[in-house]
Design a protein around this nucleic acid. Structure first.
Lengths: 189, 189
DNA sequence: CTCCCACTTGATAGATCGCTCTAGCGCCAC
DNA sequence: GTGGCGCTAGAGCGATCTATCAAGTGGGAG
């Protein structure tokens, strides 16, 4: 793939994560990417919306890789959940509470205003849920219960991100992580 | 208070909830409020930012009233938590997945871009946390544990809103509500 | 070499952004 | 009636938004 196109995608991903969709201008994207203005419309003839949809899915796939990266080395699945929340807290602090979920801000913005982008965010959340549920099922938890735990864990994580970024504390991530880890532990056979 | 000023505040609250801060133009606000353009700047000389900060706090105070409204008639505090999530799910469905948290979208948008508005959202989240924690403490749960449960419950609720609006399902609210209610039940003396 | 096409470049269109400004309306005090 | 004032009313400013466009660059195929 063209390096320019790649730079546009990664630059947009960073901007969407921090400022959301409507808050990110095309001008800011090409400036951040160091790309000429016309190149963006060469690679993304659908404009900002097409670029946004692709970046949402790209960020979603990238973030999904964190699940095996954290769960594989963990001693058990419950402490993996704890590690996941703890790692997110660390990233948040290191980036001055900027880098949390790459798509949550956009998801809320577009949920009632842009069906194309809303579907992209829904796909990503579904894939994350499925990935997490598979991990739980792998430990012997029933399929339905695994899916419930995955949804609840993802909800707690996303919500903790909201509170943490607003209040500039990582406390929500700690207590939400403990709550989920405990629930997972209790569900283990 | 002037009825025009009040209409501007309520109209802005509705728009911020659905479309966020950057996605809501001043023109859209005055159109929705049926108010003349100049009136907005008469009542809010600080412009869009001042209006936004006031609306965040106003919506926060309004939403805080839901806690006693749901918790008072409930048989016990754990089922009150369940009722809260169930009620949110009902509202979400009735409004075509538009009306969830009145400030979450704005909170994520401004967390790294506007300190004035970020502080307003932080204040609201803090007040909600305190209100919820007081309810738990009232039932004999220790002060620290009450605060933890309040933070975790609020996190789960906010995150479930994100997933629910994106995927257009109320399932996240159900499982997150169950998780929190169970945790509260376990913490009761 | 020439031709071709993917890609770069930036000026610019047309719409919309937040905001300011002047003008005037309607009500109350005097 | 007259003056003052809270509020209404909307034209219009400069800036910024997304998107388009024509022109140009560069490298590989023939």
């Amino acid at each position: 793939m063209s390096p320019t196109r790649e730079r546009i995608v990664t630059a947009t991903a960073g901007l969407l994560r921090r400022q959301g969709y409507t808050g990110t201008g095309v001008k800011a994207i090409v400036a951040e990417a160091g790309a000429p203005y016309g190149s963006l419309y060469h690679f993304f003839p659908g404009g900002k919306e097409q670029l946004g949809a692709e970046v949402i899915r790209w960020s979603g796939a990238l973030y999904a890789q964190l699940v095996p990266a954290v769960f594989d080395p963990a001693p058990d699945v419950a402490s993996a959940v704890e590690d996941f929340f703890r790692g997110a807290a660390g990233t948040l602090r290191e980036t001055d509470y900027a880098d949390a979920c790459p798509i949550a801000t956009v998801a809320l913005e577009v949920a009632s205003t842009n069906e194309v982008l809303r579907e992209a965010t829904a796909e990503v959340f579904d894939s994350w849920t499925a990935g997490l549920a598979a991990r739980f099922a792998q430990e012997g938890i029933g399929e339905d219960r695994s899916r419930e735990l995955a949804l609840a864990t993802l909800s707690a994580l996303e919500g903790a991100f909201v509170l943490a970024r607003a209040t500039r504390t990582t406390e929500p991530l700690r207590v939400a992580g403990d709550l989920c880890a405990e629930a997972v532990r209790a569900a283990l056979p």
